[in-house]
Simulated scan of single mutants.
Amino acid sequence: MELYFSPLACSLATRIAFYEAGYDAHYVQVDNKRKRLQDGSDFFEINPLGQVPVLRTDDGALLLENAAVLPYVADHLPSAKLAPIGGFERARLQQWLGFIGTELHKAIFVPMLDDAASDEVKRYAREHVALRMGVLQSHLATSDWLLDSFSVADIYLAVVLNWARFCNVDLSPWPAVLGLYKRVFARPAAARALEEELALYRAGVESKNP
Rank of each mutant, 00 (worst) to 15 (best):
D39C: 07
S41F: 09
P53R: 02
F44G: 06
A68N: 05
S41Q: 15
L63W: 05
L62Q: 09
V52I: 13
E65N: 05
L64G: 11
D58Q: 13
L37A: 02
R56F: 01
V52G: 04
F43H: 14
L49W: 01
I46S: 10
D58H: 12
L37Q: 06
G50H: 08
T57H: 12
P48K: 15
F43Q: 12
E45V: 14
V69H: 02
D58N: 08
S41W: 04
V54C: 01
R34A: 13
A67G: 11
S41A: 14
A68W: 02
L49E: 11
R36H: 12
R34H: 07
Q38R: 15
A68E: 09
P48N: 06
V69W: 01
L49V: 06
S41K: 05
A67K: 03
D58M: 12
L62M: 11
T57K: 11
E45Y: 15
G50L: 05
G40S: 13
S41Y: 03
F44K: 13
A67P: 10
D39R: 03
A61S: 15
T57L: 11
D39N: 10
A68T: 08
I46W: 10
L64T: 08
L55A: 11
L55F: 10
D42Q: 00
D58P: 09
R34M: 09
L62A: 07
P48Y: 10
D42T: 10
A68R: 02
L63I: 15
Q51W: 07
Q51Y: 08
L55Y: 03
Q51F: 09
R56H: 01
G60D: 03
V54G: 02
K35W: 00
Q38K: 15
R56M: 02
A68L: 06
D39A: 09
V54I: 02
L55H: 06
V69S: 01
P53T: 11
A61L: 13
G50F: 04
I46F: 12
K35H: 04
G60I: 05
Q51L: 15
F43D: 07
G40I: 14
N66I: 08
L62I: 03
G40C: 14
P48T: 10
I46R: 13
A68Q: 04
